[in-house]
Amino acid sequence: MRVIWSLVLVGALAAIAFAGSRAGGEAVFAVAVPYLALATFLVGLSARVIGWARSPVPFRIPTSCGQQRSLPWIRSSRLDNPSTGLGAAGRVLLEALAFRSLFRNTRAELREGGRLSYAADKWLWAAALAFHYSFLTILLRHLRFFAEPVPGFVALLQGLDGCFRVGVPTFYVSSVLLVVAAGFLLGRRLLDPKLRYLSLPADYVPLVLLLAIAASGLLLRHVYKTDLLAVKDLAVGLVTFRPVVPEGVGGLFYVHIFLVSSLFAYLPFSKLVHAAGIFLSPTRNLANDNRRRRHVNPWNPPIVGHTYAEWEADFHDKLVAAGLPLDKE
């Protein structure tokens, strides 16, 4: 049911763009909506990150998967249990680039006789990795519309991505991987009863939206081909703040650009903001040095000390009268 609502929502967005552009709202969908979406994305994301930056650093949580640094003759695990900031940075970088936490994903199953078994489940990790890197490749490939002259690495990336040279225009490896991986991530939520029970519309909407974006993009490239020069005019106009409304690009193009705008505007307010949040994972980005470095919480009350010298001064006369020895002589 929750996935149906997500489908309805994304379908409604697509219908709005299609009908709206047909009804003469081309300028709205080609210029106003992308600018608004980008502004929402930038301001929303910055607000989220600034909010996190204003929060105190939590106490270091040593959820480690390796030997802590201790005695010099015990080999410590520098990346899994870092004792320095550099090691922690390496752990965050590996998490962001290789998704090591997902690599540790396990699957619990009830076997016959009521025996519970856990087994490694790497499919989530593999699909997530395939999805994210395909998405990055596709995002970078779209630079060919925004930049003139196009940076050299875009041609290199396209060459690698289309190395199988299947069909004209070439089918890209990243297009296929993105659809397959996102389809797997959606299917996983739908087919596993435990995951279906846990999944909310907020889990389905991003996946359905991404699949709809991929579908509209693939259709625009391979089936209902649009006028790419007009698209480039629009993209270049947008980034140079001299927007032009393209002509003859078709309703499907407006569906694509509206869904992408929706994704960008939605990102800061949804689970997709993990793109920024992953760098602030407290169990990943803090070195395990609790025993060596003092942790000061900003809400700790100031420590009011009273030294022996001060105490002696307070009771000086009484100490002298009692004939007790004084430090201050």
């Binding site: 990150v49 930056a53 650093v57 760098f279």
Partner: peptide
């Protein structure tokens, strides 16, 4: 303790 400086540098 705050790490605001590092986080804002990353955002920038």
């Amino acid at each position: 303790m705050y790490d605001g400086g590092k986080i804002l540098a990353g955002l920038a």
